[in-house]
């Protein structure tokens, strides 16, 4: 456990119910980012970024490498706290109105509410079953019936149940790349997050596995708020409701995905999505 995390845990915690995530309504802003500046040491990675991310929608971050999209994604569940030189310059990020960089916020609790799926699937070297219940065991849940129920619910939620229900005790590492990624999504769902952050979740997958994950994203948005970083613009167009285009650490344009891909407001956005960039 890092020093930063230790320090946060030692503070009085803001409970989930204070975050009020259970009481949210459709299509309101769940995540609000205001005038956010972010630095890695002396290098500024994000410049005055402001945006609202709507509840139960899929929001895609697009832009060339180094534009800051993954940095911003990682700021939403404070993953960047783990990088020693990372620091916020100014601005804030709120989740359901709570400033997540408030000293009293417990980052463990935050990351339970704001789950993350990474570019490379990273199942633990454990059985499929144990991968899914890992977070629940950490929470102290031991009752088998409850764990069994969570495994079935989450694997169904991740569209993996039918493929693995007869071999839950085999290693998660024995699955194909696409199945491993869906197992990681099931693991993230197990702790019942409200927000799922996905950092290029399909970049290591073949087209069939990519299609399955995209279908999954489409079904998950009924229950979860999803933010996805992708280099694949067609994927952003296919899966997202809203798209944000970043360049050199700045948010150039954010709008409904239809609008961005059919008639963007900014010339830079049009140049990027039509491949005329650079």
């Amino acid at each position: 456990m890092s020093l930063v995390t230790d320090k946060i845990i030692s503070k009085p915690k803001i409970e989930t119910r204070d975050l009020g995530l259970e009481m949210t309504e459709n299509n309101r802003s769940l995540i609000e980012i205001s005038n956010f500046d972010f630095f890695y040491g002396e290098k500024q990675a994000l410049f005055d970024v402001s945006m609202d991310i709507k509840e139960r929608e899929v929001t895609a971050f697009i832009g060339p490498s180094g534009c800051g999209k993954s940095t911003l994604l990682r700021c939403i569940n404070r993953m960047n706290d783990l990088i020693e030189v990372a620091r916020i310059g100014s601005g804030k990020i709120t989740v359901n109105g709570v400033d997540i960089y408030d000293d009293r916020v417990d980052t463990i609790e935050l990351r339970k509410r704001v789950g993350m799926v990474f570019q490379k699937s990273n199942p633990f070297p454990k059985s499929i079953y144990e991968n899914v219940v890992y977070g629940l065991r950490i929470q102290g849940i031991t009752r088998k019936s409850k764990l069994d129920e969570a495994v079935e619910r989450c694997l169904k939620g991740a569209a993996l149940w039918e493929e693995v229900k007869d071999r839950l005790d085999t290693s998660g590492l024995s699955l194909s790349g696409g199945q491993q990624q869906r197992l990681c999504i099931a693991r993230a769902l197990a702790v019942e997050p409200d927000i799922l952050l996905m950092d290029e979740p399909c970049s290591a997958l073949d087209p069939v596995a990519t299609a399955k994950v995209e279908e999954l994203i489409h079904t998950l948005k009924d229950r979860y708020t999803i933010v996805i970083v992708t280099h694949n613009m067609q994927q952003a167009a296919r899966v997202s409701d809203r798209t944000a285009f970043f360049y050199l650490g700045k948010l150039i344009e954010m709008n409904a995905t239809d609008q961005i891909f059919m008639s963007p407001d900014k010339e830079q956005t049009e140049a990027y999505i039509s491949g005329r960039f650079g």
Binding site: Q234, A237, R238, T257, D258, F261, M262
Partner: peptide
């Protein structure tokens, strides 16, 4: 059609 071509490749 324009929407489908723009978004669905």
């Amino acid at each position: 059609v324009v929407r489908y071509v723009s978004l669905r490749a």
